[in-house]
C-alpha cells in the first residue's frame, strides 16, 4: 500500500484550503482531479500486458514476470493471451516485416486505453539487425509507442523501470483534457494503418511516395553517396 499522505497530496487541489492539522487525512479537490486521480490510480495498478513474445527480449520479459523480479508487485501479473483483454502491448524483440502485419492487427484489436512499450534495441530502432532486409527499424514506424526501454536485452530491472515510467505517464493523463489522450476525445479514435506484404513491406500511408517513385523509375533508384 502506498503512503496515504502522498496519495492525498497528489489528490489535493492547491487552490482549495485545508487546515494544516487535517492535511494528513483530508484532501479537498475538484471533480476532474478526483476522477482522474482515482481512475488513473486504478488503471496504473492493474495494467494487463498481452502475452506476446517476439524474440530474445521475451525471455527477459518472462524472467521479469517470474519469481525473482515479480512483476505482480505492480499489478501486472495478469498476462492475457487475447488482445481484447489487454491494456499493454510489450513489443519484446525484433519486429520483422512479416511480423509487423500481425502486430498492427493485434494493436488495433486492443481496446482503449492501450499502451505500447518497446522493449529492447530492436523494437526501439532496429537494434543490431537494423540492416536486415526483413527487419523493421523500430515498431514506432507503424504504431505509437509510449515507453522505450533500450538494452539488448534490457535487464529485468530496466524493464521494471520502463513499466514504472508507464505508470507515471498514466498518472499524468486527464479525463477532462480531451487532447491528452485519443480515447477521451469525441468519437472513435483512428486505427493504425495495416501494412501489406508486397515485394517488400508496403505502408499504405506512403502510397503517394511509392507512386511518385514508380513514375520516376528511369532515374537510378540507388541514392548517391554524397554527404559522408
Amino acid at each position: 500500500m502506498t503512503n496515504n499522505s502522498d496519495f492525498l497530496k497528489e489528490l489535493h487541489d492547491p487552490e482549495l484550503p485545508v487546515p494544516d492539522d487535517m492535511r494528513s487525512s483530508v484532501a479537498v479537490t475538484n471533480l476532474d482531479k478526483l476522477m482522474s486521480t482515482v481512475y488513473n490510480w486504478g488503471r496504473r495498478n492493474s495494467i494487463w500486458p498481452m502475452a506476446f513474445g517476439l524474440a530474445c527480449c521475451a525471455i527477459e520479459m518472462i524472467a521479469t514476470a517470474a519469481s525473482r523480479y515479480d512483476q505482480a508487485r505492480f499489478g501486472m501479473e495478469v498476462i492475457r493471451a487475447s488482445p481484447r483483454q489487454s491494456d499493454l502491448m510489450l513489443v519484446s524483440g525484433t519486429v520483422t516485416k512479416k511480423m509487423v502485419v500481425p502486430i498492427v492487427r493485434l494493436y488495433n484489436q486492443m481496446p482503449e486505453p492501450k499502451y505500447v512499450l518497446a522493449m529492447g534495441a530492436c523494437a526501439c530502432g532496429g537494434g543490431p539487425f537494423k540492416d536486415g532486409y526483413n527487419v523493421v527499424g523500430g515498431i514506432d514506424k507503424y504504431i505509437p509507442v509510449d515507453v522505450y526501454v533500450p538494452g539488448c536485452p534490457p535487464t529485468p530491472q530496466a524493464l521494471l523501470h520502463g513499466l514504472i515510467m508507464l505508470q507515471k505517464k498514466i498518472d499524468g493523463q486527464s479525463l477532462s483534457n480531451r487532447n491528452s489522450v485519443p480515447w477521451y476525445g469525441r468519437g472513435p479514435s483512428d486505427e493504425a494503418t495495416m501494412p501489406v506484404l508486397g515485394p517488400d513491406i508496403i505502408d499504405p500511408r506512403q502510397a503517394h511516395i511509392l507512386r511518385r517513385q514508380a513514375g520516376a523509375t528511369e532515374q537510378p533508384s540507388e541514392p548517391a553517396d554524397t554527404d559522408a
Partner: peptide, 23 residues
C-alpha cells in the same frame, strides 16, 4: 538516404495500384 525513410526497397516498375498481395 531512403526515399521512404525506412528499410524498404521496391523493384523497378512496381505499380502499387495493380498489386495484389499473395502472402
Amino acid at each position: 538516404d531512403n526515399p521512404y525513410g525506412k528499410n524498404v526497397r521496391y523493384p523497378d516498375g512496381f505499380v502499387l495500384d495493380e498489386y495484389q498481395s499473395t502472402a
